[in-house]
Amino acid sequence: MGKPRVKVPKSAAAGDVVTIKTLIKHKMESGQRKDKDGNKIPRKIINFFSATFNGTEVMSVNLHGAVSTNPFIQFDMTVPETGDLAFKWVDDDGTVTETTKTIKVG
């Protein structure tokens, strides 16, 4: 898995709804493709994504083979207070990539 890129506002007013954008480099091999000898290329994708704010899960996604290369996920959330937004991606091989951004209120 490559380095994740996330776009999170640095500050917000309490109760603001903000847009979060995330992107991570990954081939997302769907398991449907064949190599030039006609053998199926085994599936290797990021199968799970989650965003957690101060320990409470905001949203999570189970991804399947139909999600494009370099999976992009965008969502909106309410910011109740100053806190850390933690992102997590899980690969089929068990590798976990994490990153955290702080949102300041006030």
Binding site: P71, I73, F75
Partner: peptide, 12 residues
């Protein structure tokens, strides 16, 4: 509870 109930992604 904090999510707005929306999501965007890119698919095949």
């Amino acid at each position: 509870a904090l999510a707005a109930g929306n999501g965007s992604t890119r698919i095949r």
